[in-house]
Nucleic acid binder design. Sequence first.
DNA 1: AAAAGACATATTGTCTACAATAAAAAGATG
DNA 2: CATCTTTTTATTGTAGACAATATGTCTTTT
Lengths: 239, 239
Amino acid sequence: MDTEVRSKKWLCFDDLRRKILTEELQPGSYLDEIEVAETYGISRPPLREILRQLAGEGYLVLHENRGAQVAPMTHKTLRNFFVAAPMIYAAVTRLAAEHATPAQIVKLKECQWSFRQAIRGGDAAERAVGNERFHSLIGEMADNEFLMPSLRRLLIDHTRIGMTFYNPRKAAMACISATAADQHDQFIELIEAGDADAAADLAVAHWELSRAQIESFVTPEAMQIPLGRAPGAEKRGAS
Amino acid sequence: MDTEVRSKKWLCFDDLRRKILTEELQPGSYLDEIEVAETYGISRPPLREILRQLAGEGYLVLHENRGAQVAPMTHKTLRNFFVAAPMIYAAVTRLAAEHATPAQIVKLKECQWSFRQAIRGGDAAERAVGNERFHSLIGEMADNEFLMPSLRRLLIDHTRIGMTFYNPRKAAMACISATAADQHDQFIELIEAGDADAAADLAVAHWELSRAQIESFVTPEAMQIPLGRAPGAEKRGAS
DNA sequence: AAAAGACATATTGTCTACAATAAAAAGATG
DNA sequence: CATCTTTTTATTGTAGACAATATGTCTTTT
């Protein structure tokens, strides 16, 4: 019961994080402290610490005396995302190619293996989390504490947007997934070779693929799926 | 006693933040939860929430079972800072020029007035915090939640580095301060005019000024002032 | 005498109970 | 009948007490 008790808190942290990334917890929905605390078998004070941390990393928004809200996604969010993503992704990937250690590359390869498994399995959530982890690892390779916060923030919404727009029934989607996985292999190659310029270019190309996927959903008839709601419009729970 | 009690927590938050920015709390030093809690007249659970949040924003580093450490600054920190700063500053300033609202510009002008006052006063801490606030406001103008986290992180260390290397006795320092203040006026003008390109260029120029100041201290004889220590090398307190 | 182990102490982590605040519902009044 | 007020209830915020962990010291043993 040594490690078990210790990690109960981090289990909660990781699981909330996963649920938010996979949209099992919908953007804009509110959390009930008592309910969540009981779910993970911890009391409210440590949970509240976790909520603060998740809020600090952009997963949640805390409202005074009104609890924790899963970070909403609005039209502005999407617009800002499109502005920031290519710049940060390119910069981080460049640095990763310059600084990656052999141990990190091994981890990245393992991650990529899991990612391909997830694609074969066809589970959208597993695929999304695997992709998030892949790019998060590249972020760690870059080893720059000043760029990491923005990368983390981008990956949250990139993952959630990916979940929203992912439709495994569409044939085009399978093609995109295959291309993305191939690009991941190229990431590994270029980073391992230390080719910073090519890696940065690939990051932009990888981003363009993602962008095209998103835009193909967004442009036709302006947001079929609600990306978020005004805070307080519909309070508790997420139907 | 209504607003008083409510804000006691935020008073603590803001004051810790200020103390870290001004290096009243030295990088690498550890905080005693009981001591800090008693200082601000709150109990440990809410304090711990604050510490988590400060950690999330990069002011602190939390070590399991070993408390909160003021974010250390190492040589790598400085190196990474030099890589990330120009990119983020330029991007944020560009966006600020594109999106600033009249109300925000008014606030920025007020801030600049305070900043000039602080320079005249000659108090290094007040000057540093004023400068931080100025650039933080520009960040808010940019209105991009994905770039803000990295900007915040940069401003923490930029402010602390500025405090470390600031020497009001040197004549060159007064010159730099004057130039910086003039550039701030130019920021206001360009943002008000909505000239994004020029604003971005100015951001780079402003950065170069800061960089030159820092390098003039760092290069001559390789770090006269200790930038940090290994975690745990010298534990409690900061002599 | 030096090193390893056990104990003591101080600090962090957590829980339960209580207080304060805000939303919701019921009642009263124009 | 609508609206404002008051009361209720549910949820968040805080405090104090307790448990667990880590560090430093002292003893014991080789």
